[in-house]
Structures are given as C-alpha cells and as structure tokens.
Simulated scan of single mutants.
Amino acid sequence: MIADFVRYLEAERRYSPLTVRNYRHDVEQFLAWLGVDDARFEPQRITTDDIREWILYRTETGRVSAASMNREISSLRALFRWLLRTGAVGRDVVHPIPSLRTSQRLPAFVPESRMNGIVSECECDSEDFVRERNSLIILLLYTCGLRLAELVGIDRDDFSADFSSLRIRGKGDKERIVPMLEFVREKILHYIGLIERQNICISSEKALFLTHKGKRISRTAVYRTVQEELDRAGVQGKKSPHVLRHTFATHLLNSGADMREIQELLGHASLQATQVYTHNSIARLREIYAKAHPREKGGK
C-alpha cells in the first residue's frame, strides 16, 4: 500500500523527493503507533477518533510542535484522499480534522546594509573554482529567491541562450522564468568558463553547481556553504538558503515591488503564502517611524 501511495505522490502529485520522504515517514509512524505494518493495515477500520488520538499522542507524549503536527496531518490527509479515490475506504476520516493553530513567526532575513556587503564581495572574480561557485550560490539564492532544491537542480542548459533568464522547476514540477541581473549574468559566464578552463566537468554532467570532482553538488553541501558564508560575513541569527529567499522577498517588498510580482518570482501557488512578508515590511516601517517621528524623538 505504501509503495503505491509513494508512486502516486511522485507520478501524479509530482511532489519533491524530500516531501515524498516526509509523507512516507509520517504514514509509517502512524502505522507503527497503530501496531500494524503495511501488510496488516486495514484503512477501512480507521476512524476520525483514531486520528484525534494520534494527534494527542504526538503533541503530548511526543511533544511535537503544532507546525510539525500539521505536516503529519497533511500526510494522513493525502493518504486517505488517495485511499478514497482508489476505493479502499468509503469516506475520508481525516477531513473533519482541522489544522492546529500555530503562532505567526516572521521570516528571518538579512538586513539590506549587511547584504550589500556580502553581494559586493561575491561580485569579485577569481580563478578559484570553489570560491566562485560559493559566491554564485549566494548570488542566485539572493537575487532570484530560489529554494534549496531548485538551486541544486539547475542545469547549465536551463538558462536562455544569452544567459539573461533562468527556467526554474519548482514545487509540483511547476516551471517559472526568473530574470538575471547583469552582474549575476557576468558571474555565471565567468564561472562556466572556469569549469571549462579547469576541466572541472569532463563527463556528461549538466549541473550548474558541481563538486571539485565534477558531480552535481548535494543539498547538504549547499546548506553548509550558505551557513559558512553568512557566518563569515557576520550575519546574526538563523543562516540558511531559505533565509536568503526570505531576504530576496523582503528587500523587494521594501523597495516597492508589487505583491503579485513577488509571488510569481517566488513560485508561490497562492498570494497568501507571499503575504507573510508584509509583516516584515510593517515591522521595518514601525522601526523607521519610531526613529523619525517627532513625538517619538522628543518624548511624550
């Protein structure tokens, strides 16, 4: 059953490998809690009360956060929708279960003044392959707002003929086109020339980001690279590829970009996902207001 469900997620829903892995793990955990394996699982006997008990067990005994629990609920929701569709069950027992309330957390981002210094350093060309690759990783994450998986998945032929735009394959295998800023375009051309001059890639590997052995770089390596680069630049707080994606969106919004345009550039399916960045913008406005307004400056 699980194998068929996974094939459905991969082939029809076109979920990313990471999402499929998480959904499979969540379903297997649920079965383990029931005390059955895949072969002995009888989905038609599961009730909505069983799902509620599972949630209580995970949140109270397992101390799972509301956000993590909502993902596990989504996994079971996908499973039972698929079972209903295939006729294995007569009703969707997860449908009555609402998502748990979560606290609204503002996305972490790098201040513009700090990011300007990082970008300036990344612009400098060198003949050091690793240095150039790491600089380009930072630049593409920040100037294009890419997800980690999207960055790792870039092939050199995903660029337009003149390298002025990039075709991205996002969540659900949806494609979008993002423009390249001129200085980033020049950096890409320099980096690709470096790969050729130093014979980094002598096989048929088409990936843009390579290891020094010419293989596609891993997600772990990119994550570690971003952490090291931001730490070296003195960035405080969380340091990850997604922080650079948040930084991209926040800086665009603060500079007056339209919310719909930001949504398209980020590849969000709905505007609601993009609107979280308005909170960062309002927080910035409050900070400016507190520093500049005469009543705040002069006291009450």
Rank of each mutant, 00 (worst) to 15 (best):
I202P: 13
K239M: 11
A249M: 07
V243E: 01
E205Q: 02
F248Y: 11
S203A: 13
G237L: 06
I217V: 12
T250R: 03
K239C: 14
L253A: 08
A249D: 09
G256K: 07
A249L: 11
R232P: 06
E196T: 02
S240F: 08
T211R: 03
R219L: 05
Q198D: 13
M259I: 15
L208E: 04
G256T: 02
Q227M: 07
V222N: 04
L208Q: 00
A207H: 04
R260Y: 09
V235H: 02
P241M: 08
F209H: 03
L253K: 08
Q198I: 01
V235E: 03
H246G: 08
T220G: 14
I262C: 09
S204E: 15
T211L: 08
H246T: 10
S204D: 15
G237W: 08
I200H: 03
R245K: 12
D231S: 12
S203M: 12
C201Q: 14
E228H: 13
N254R: 12
Q227R: 14
E261Y: 15
T225H: 05
A233S: 14
E196D: 13
L208D: 04
A221C: 11
L230I: 10
A207R: 01
L208Y: 01
S203P: 08
I202R: 15
I200K: 09
G214Q: 02
V243T: 10
N254G: 11
V226F: 02
T247S: 15
I200L: 06
K206W: 01
T250S: 12
G214V: 11
R197Q: 01
G237P: 05
E261G: 15
N254T: 05
V243H: 07
E228V: 13
V243L: 07
V226N: 04
S255I: 01
Q198E: 09
H251N: 11
I217M: 08
K213N: 12
D231I: 03
R232T: 12
E205K: 07
V226C: 05
L210W: 03
T225A: 08
R219V: 10
A207Q: 02
Y223A: 14
A257R: 14
Y223T: 11
A221R: 10
F248P: 04
G214L: 01
T250D: 02
K239V: 12
T225D: 00
I217P: 08
K239I: 12
K213V: 10
E229V: 15
V222T: 07
R245C: 09
R216H: 07
H246L: 02
G214H: 03
